[in-house]
Design a protein around this nucleic acid. Sequence first.
DNA 1: GTCTATATAAGGATAGAC
DNA 2: GTCTATCCTTATATAGAC
Lengths: 205, 205
Amino acid sequence: MNAPHFSTRQRILDSAEALFARHGFAGASLRQVTAAASVNLAAVNYHFGSKENLINEVFRRRLDELTTQRLQALAAVQARPDHGLDDVLDAFVRPALVLVPDEHGGAGFVRVLARAYAEHNEQLRKFMHDNYGPALRQFASAFAKLLPDLDKQELYWRLDIVSGALTYAMADFGMIKRRGISEQQHRDLAAEHLIKFAAAGLRAR
Amino acid sequence: MNAPHFSTRQRILDSAEALFARHGFAGASLRQVTAAASVNLAAVNYHFGSKENLINEVFRRRLDELTTQRLQALAAVQARPDHGLDDVLDAFVRPALVLVPDEHGGAGFVRVLARAYAEHNEQLRKFMHDNYGPALRQFASAFAKLLPDLDKQELYWRLDIVSGALTYAMADFGMIKRRGISEQQHRDLAAEHLIKFAAAGLRAR
DNA sequence: GTCTATATAAGGATAGAC
DNA sequence: GTCTATCCTTATATAGAC
């Protein structure tokens, strides 16, 4: 947990992320991972102890950073007294854009996230809940303030839809053809559509 | 493809569906499947030839029926000249309700669907596209008529979000606590929320 | 920290008796 | 159509030399 120089540990994480995105956690083997990373098979167990733990570390690496940036963005948004639903959604989505798959099958951590969402895996759920539950609750309360007419039950219901919809849509960004604009612009555009959609859904009556 | 009496073939399909829902396609082994079905391991290859093909048959069994019912419901909706967005969405969602997971971890085919959505598996995508693409296009054109202001590009974009959101939300129905009402009522209620949300998202401007 | 070699288990698939 | 037994491949994990 100390020497982040570069190399072996990092490369394993990179390859694992890409392969988990493409083939799922059960579908990607440690042999594939180590081959893609051009490291020895035994290195995985040396650095991570087990496949199970490697999976956790793949999440932790990105989610720690992602959560920090989301909360920063949320704080910035909430500092403005006139902020709206779109702004809160933006704070949630924008920091994830950099983790979106690229145009031609490139991996992208959000696809791993989408996988995790589909897995009703108890261990993974617990890990996510323990580590990132509090941050999500901050967003939930930000939404609650902006949607005072929604009762708690219904709000959670809709946030569940929203987070699922956002995650999956982002995992598919690479599939939408872009026309003449830069990849960065394309992502921004896609994010705007998504936010517009989610905001309307949240406001539905 | 001929003798649907009951027994072995059916039981394998039932067990496979449940286990694929819970552990994914790579995560569920044929040994688990046959054990759960109380049939011999070799029966899978005798009846289905391969795991790959078993997966396809798990889909075909439900999707043939589901697609038929969706198109019937859509036709009924379109026969009424005053039909709206909610009605078309209803035609899409309601036939799937019976395939939703039950309250305590019961499988439910929509979870398998959600898995397939997360898999960017080429073979599976092709299978789905070949077999159920035309039906989806009928829904797309029904939506197009009701949303004439949306350009084609944007419409497809939103339909993609909607189908993802609907699929995942349905896969999670079992997780939402129901209070005092019957399971049937609970599902209807959940479906209504979902439809309301999706309709608002589609209409966003 | 990285390697080779190997232990050990689990996977999909098939042959052949019944 | 169903069984047992087995082949062959792949998997995770570890021991021990370097």
